[in-house]
Write a protein that binds this DNA or RNA. Structure first.
Lengths: 121, 121
DNA sequence: ATTCATGCAAAGGGTTTGCAGGAAA
DNA sequence: TTTCCTGCAAACCCTTTGCATGAAT
């Protein structure tokens, strides 16, 4: 993909953020620097980066959120405030037997633990 | 919730189906019996059943699918055709340590393995 | 007779897309 | 100069909702 200032800013915003922003939040951030940027451009770039493995996407109800952290990790999501925290893959011990019994070739695991974060005890 | 023929048919359709139907598929099924049923009614009933734990809902990209199987299980989803298969919880060995390190009270785990089903080797 | 779920259609949220103009190569 | 990414707005898909009617109690 050809270079553009908008694309670079979108990419950097996701990479820097630790709050797993959705498209609109990225839009609001980049708009501070490029006021005329459009949501369409944000979506086009986020889709491109996701498809090419530069960032990850996370399903959050009816919308998509983005994660610049490519290290192996899973997510904790709070039912109350929706915040998403990373949990390191090495803190989870996953074992499963698939090949013979289920006849399915695994490529990607989506593992999210829902519950209450420390602000809602 | 008050009894209605539509509600009963919607519930039975989800319970009987093993293909994790979305709202529109349930709608098409029930329409064969009650041709004038509306999509709104299907959504209202599915939401009610889900909230009251009579069925489960599954996130599938931009839409919601429903699962009448309440036994503890997770899902395998094919990247190619989107089919969702159940995998029994006992075939997966999950261990994780959360409370001290992450300060998060888990209530629900969403675990889906994505990959290729046996039709797309 | 009262209550409340339905059918219908409009509206909603999030996302995608066609097009003309402007920036990158 | 050509390519293609952008801004804009319309369209899209899935889902929800307001309203009047009709079914359930």
């Amino acid at each position: 993909m050809r270079y553009s200032r908008q694309g670079e800013l979108i990419y950097r915003t996701v990479k820097k953020s630790k709050m797993h922003p959705d498209a609109n939040l990225v839009y609001e951030q980049v708009k501070k620097i490029v006021p005329k940027i459009s949501l369409g451009t944000v979506y086009r770039n986020l889709n491109y980066f996701t498809k090419n493995g530069l960032i990850r996407s996370i399903v959050d109800g009816s919308k998509t959120r983005y994660d610049g952290n490519l290290d192996p990790h899973y997510h904790l999501q709070c039912d109350i405030c929706g915040v998403i925290k990373d949990i390191k893959a090495k803190d989870i011990n996953l074992r499963f037997q698939l090949n013979d019994k289920y006849d399915f070739k695994a490529s990607n695991i989506e593992f999210t633990i829902k519950g209450k974060c420390n602000k809602h005890k």
